[in-house]
Every structure is written in C-alpha cells, then in structure tokens.
C-alpha cells in the first residue's frame, strides 16, 4: 500500500540535499558568467572545505573546550577564506593561461587535473576513510505532522539561500559586484570602465570555491565526510547547472531540488543502486531538447 507520509518524508530530505546541489551549481555559474569557463574540481573544493572545516572545528573545540554550535560558527569564516584561497589558486594555476591563450579546452583538463591532485592531497592528509563530522545542532529530528526533519536539514536550506542571497546582494549593491556583472555582460566594455577583468575572473573563482566550501560544511554533518565526498556531489551539481541553466540563478535552485527529490524517490522506491540514473537521464533530455537549460537564456558553449 502506498504510504503518503513516506513520500513527503523523502521529498523533504530530497529538498535539503537538493539545496546543496543548488549551491554548488550556483558556484559553477559564477565562473561561467565571467569567463565562460568552469571549475571541474568544484566537487573537490566542496570536499576540501568540509575537511578543512572538520579540522578547524575540532581544533577550536579541543583547545578552548568550546561547545559545538559555537565552534561551528567560529569555524565558518576560516572555511570561507580557505575556500576563496583555494578557488583563486585553481584560477591562477589552471585557468588563467588557458584564457590568455584563448585555449578552448586547456581549462577543462587543468581543472580536472587540479581536482584529482586535491583529492590525492586530501587522501594523504585525512586518509581514505569516511568519518563523522561533528553535528553542531541536535541530532533529534523535529516532528511536524509525522514528518521528521533534522535541524541540520533546516540549516542547510537556510544557509544555502542566505549564501546565494548574499552573493546576489554583493552583485547588485556594491561597486565591485557591479563590476562583476559588467564583466559577465561584456568583458571588453568592462575593461574600458577601468575594471581589471582578469582580477574579476580570479574573484569569481574565489567566490565559486567559497560557495562549494560552504556547501561542504553544510552537508557534512548529515552525511559522512572524507576525501571521497566531492566527486559524486560535484558531478551531480554539474548536472544541476546544466539542467537549470548556466545563466539562471533560479534555475539551479529548482534544478537542485528536482534532482535531490528524484534521487531520494528512486533510492527508496526502486533501488539505491539506480539513485543516480533519473537525474542523469534528465540531464540527457535537457541537453537534447533545451541545451540552454530549463531556465537558461543563452545556449551554452561547446564543452
């Protein structure tokens, strides 16, 4: 017999994981907007953020004996800065040269290679095993009409929305944000305004990895963390960016939630072995029938 409550339960937990996909996909959009390039190591940026967050948080906790929720909050600025530095490094090592020489494919290989290097690095520092990330919020689920919601899941949704809103505010309100938007719209004309567009591209990589690192510390308390955390998430988020459209902010949220929910439903009703299939089928369908994405405006560049 069909259990309606289970369905709702799956949808609710799908939403929170979908928001993570959305945030990481949002990160893909940030670099695509300014430079028409993507960081294929975005998943590894998420993984590194989560592991760096783990280390920072346990250090803060052990040295000062600070309670977990406070240690979590104190850890956030460090992880965000770490993410920015990591993203800037990726741009500097892997993307800048490709852009300068107008290489069509150089950045693809370079960002994939850097992702693999980061993964190996993480395996050597933190080991190959997965481990638990300390949960800053109560493990006890909140019950709403029989639906169980983890406090951390609520935080994921709120945090993801807050982060995207913050970047949006930066772009709309600050002069540097406007420079980013101008660079995305017309890089040559932005240069004529006196904007150092190479720096803007670096900034977009920094912000992109910042969002991934933030997603890493949001998701880790409800999953496990470890050097292998990134690959699957990065790929899923990439699918979301394509499904939602590389140019649409709403698209990644809708696309992320859509994929998060189909994942969960397939995992429960069919088999966890097929969990990844519907999302990827959706990806193929979108690529065939609406390559600019469900919400995208312009066609994406051949990759």
């Amino acid at each position: 017999m069909f259990d309606f409550q289970t369905l709702i339960q799956l949808i609710v937990s799908g939403i929170s994981v979908g928001m993570i996909y959305g945030v990481v996909a949002f990160g893909y959009q940030l670099t695509f907007a300014t430079s028409k390039t993507l960081n294929f190591g975005q998943g590894e940026a998420l993984m590194l953020g989560s592991l760096a967050g783990f280390t920072i948080m346990t250090q803060i906790g052990s040295i000062f004996g600070i309670p977990l929720p406070i240690a979590y909050v104190l850890m956030l600025p460090f992880v965000l800065i770490f993410g920015m530095a990591q993203g800037a490094l990726v741009e500097w090592l892997g993307v800048r040269q490709a852009i300068k020489t107008k290489s069509e494919a150089g950045w693809i290989m370079a960002t994939i290679a850097l992702g693999i290097i980061f993964k190996n690095l993480a395996e050597n520092i933190w080991g190959r095993d997965t481990f638990t990330f300390p949960n800053p919020l109560p493990e006890q689920a909140i019950q709403i009409m029989g639906i169980r919601i983890l406090p951390m899941e609520v935080l994921i949704v709120c945090g993801a929305i807050a982060l995207m809103a913050a970047v949006e505010m930066f772009n709309r309100r600050s002069i540097y944000g406007k420079a980013v938007v101008a660079t995305a719209a017309d890089i040559g004309a932005a240069g004529l305004m006196g904007v150092n567009t190479a720096q803007v591209i670096t900034l977009s990589y920094a912000l992109s990895s910042l969002t991934a690192a933030f997603a890493g510390v949001l998701v880790a308390p409800v999953t496990l963390t470890g050097a292998g955390l990134g690959s699957a998430l990065g790929l899923k988020a990439f699918a979301v960016a394509i499904i939602g459209g590389l140019t649409s902010g709403v698209g990644v949220v809708v696309g992320g939630v859509l994929l998060g929910i189909t994942d969960r439903l397939t995992g429960y009703y069919i088999s966890t072995g097929y969990q990844d299939v519907p999302g990827l089928v959706l990806l193929l369908l979108v690529l065939s029938f609406k390559p600019s994405g469900l919400f995208g405006k312009s066609a994406i560049k051949k990759v």
């Binding site: 719209a185 932005a190 240069g191």
Partner: peptide, 30 residues
C-alpha cells in the same frame, strides 16, 4: 585597457556596448 582608462582615456566604443543587464544609472556608475 583598464590601465589606460585609469590614465583618463574614455572610449565610447563602436556598437555602444552598454551593459544590457544593468540599469541606466548603474551603467553610468560603472
């Protein structure tokens, strides 16, 4: 070009090249 702009050379380019996604005022602010 950004360095030259900083020296005080303003260029209203061929094809206008205004920023379509920014408001008129934000174009001027840029």
């Amino acid at each position: 070009s950004h360095e030259i702009t900083r020296k005080g050379v303003a260029h209203s380019p061929e094809g206008r090249r205004v920023f379509p996604v920014l408001s008129v005022e934000d174009n001027l602010v840029m």
